[in-house]
Nucleic acid binder design. Structure first.
Lengths: 174, 174
DNA sequence: GGGCGATGGTTTCAGATGAAACTATCCGTT
DNA sequence: AACGGATAGTTTCATCTGAAACCATCGCCC
């Protein structure tokens, strides 16, 4: 059995088999390998790259919309955009109908970088995935979807932590 | 096909299907949900919790050994340990045979917290995994192992980025 | 058309983080 | 036993990050 729970009669925690920990280690290693790459070659941070990635496929988004599509918060987006503006990689035009909103798009310079990064990113992904069989890739896809949905569900549950805690300690709360 | 690469005849990047991105979003959501929990209830950061988690199952480790087992670097461990020492959750005894080395272990107070957290952590993991079938759990386990090994392999490759880049642009390097 | 709550976005401040410098101890060599 | 390089661990410094405060504009209501 792969997870701790399966054998959890007497509670025992082995970090190496604990899913949140494994996820975190794997992700950090993947991210930092890739980040180093983006950064060395293009001086892009991950937030900046994410903003460029979405603007590369859909233009004229507001910062709010970029945030929604990248799972970043508005502060992160604001900072990434500020830096990209300074480097003339994206441009902002105030929305004609709403003075608060800035419509963002790649400049030609930004587009050139985008066009160079995309094959690179895909190649990196392919290298990673080359360790998996076709079935495993499909399974990974499905499992990640399910886990994502499950996290959303759990987060949406009001007072998740409390509920869990109540489950574990039915009568006493501290 | 689940990944971008499979359809990469004309390079196109959809962030939502890009593995490193998906991993990162999923992990961050899992981690921050859990971190909020540890932090609210016990005033523990993730690094601190990791240190406690390994000391809970193996005592008298050095900071170096803790780092190795948690995939943290020595600075992170040093800071986490400093904070745990101050809170009297772990204790350090200088190694009798080597004055540089501190042997770390949980104090009774630390052990009490550990004993309270472990079932909680396992329960959280179980909630997450409850979205998956048995087969899917096994597949997840296998796939994560393979991906981890692949990342190691790629990182071990000298000058990974350069090699990739060379593959993509056989003749010109900027 | 003048307030007023809501929304888009930025700035500030304080704590977290990483890289590199630093300290202390150790071990092998002479 | 003294030097020099290696190792354990800490501190410093500069950057990053997140939360909350902030500013501007908007849409609604009177």
């Amino acid at each position: 059995m792969p997870n701790n729970l399966a054998t959890a009669e007497e509670p025992r925690l082995d970090l190496d088999r604990f899913l949140p920990y494994r996820l975190s280690v794997l992700t950090n290693r993947v991210s930092s390998a890739i980040a180093r790459h983006y950064s060395e070659r293009f001086g892009l941070s991950i937030p900046e790259w994410r903003v460029m990635a979405v603007l590369g496929s859909v233009s004229d988004l507001s910062a709010r919309e970029v945030a929604a599509r990248t799972a970043m918060d508005k502060v992160q987006v604001s900072r990434a955009v500020a830096s990209l503006l300074k480097a003339r990689r994206v441009q902002r035009k105030t929305d004609p109908g709403d003075g608060r909103v800035g419509r963002l798009s790649l400049t030609p310079r930004g587009r050139a970088i985008y066009d160079e990064i995309v094959p690179l990113a895909l190649h990196l992904e392919a290298l990673l995935l080359s360790a998996l069989s076709g079935d495993e890739k499909l399974a990974l896809d499905r499992v990640m979807l399910k886990l994502s949905r499950q996290v959303s569900l759990l987060q949406a549950t009001r007072d998740w932590a409390t509920i869990i805690h109540a489950n574990l300690h039915p009568a006493t709360d501290r």
